[in-house]
Amino acid sequence: MADLTTNIGKLVMKNPVMTASGTFGYGEEFADFIDLSRLGGIIVKGTTLKRREGNPYPRMAETPSGMINAVGLQNKGVDYFVEHIYPRIKDTDTNILVNVSGSTIDDYVATAECINALDKIPAIELNISCPNVKEGGMAFGTSCTSAANVVAAVRKAYDKTLIVKLSPNVTNIAEIAKAVEDAGADSVSLINTLMGMAIDAEKRKPLISTITGGLSGACVKPIALRMVWQVAKAVKIPVVGLGGIMNATDAIEFFLAGASAIEIGTANFIDPTVTIKVIDGINDYLERHGFKSIRDIVGALETA
């Protein structure tokens, strides 16, 4: 066995494979298919201060090698999470991270404070990149100043590992990453979904209720890889890579581009056991190429 242990800030993981928020529920939904304790971490559904009903149906359209969603952060609010969901999942033998979202800086801070008090949640992923909500969300993640402001405010209220999830819907993602690093983030994760659109030509109507939505799946991988590469060169904090990872080879590409850990999202919908296959496949790759540790291939892309 190669050494797959990975650290992101103070977060210690048995391997670098996590599940992306919004694609794996609270882990329980997949417990019939895989041993959850084998995962490096589970990032649970985007959580906001107050309950959100999300956007009207239809919220999803299949697209070539991917899908567009506009769920709109449907969740029962952080109090419900603390009272009802956390007790159920806290003893899962893996890292449980909460994806925190909000419409205002005060919302983000208040939600992060609630999560900070939970012993078994070692890290949060701050979502400043959701394209499917009218207020906040991605608006925070598309300018350096607003991204830095929300991260600095949450940093003061949250003392465990703070990962900030970046939007790809920007001109220069490396600048945003640097601003977030300077504001106190322990890590950045990227990419969230790309703004996209799907149309029913016969009906001359959009395929989802919000007209535009977030594109994910295999089709976004080349963009995600490019952005991970750019950001990893620009910041000193560890980068968590995601976007279109469908198998172990895809994951290896993200490590080579500079990611220290990865998240698997949309692929969970097609194969509920994909995470385990990726973990095993990473180990096989490392052994096959004679690497002792996953750390040996982070940013190991040979460009000369």
Partner: peptide
């Protein structure tokens, strides 16, 4: 229309 089939993605 659904994606995960397991109550995880909240699309349907």
């Amino acid at each position: 229309k659904m994606a995960c089939g397991l109550g995880a993605c909240l699309c349907c």
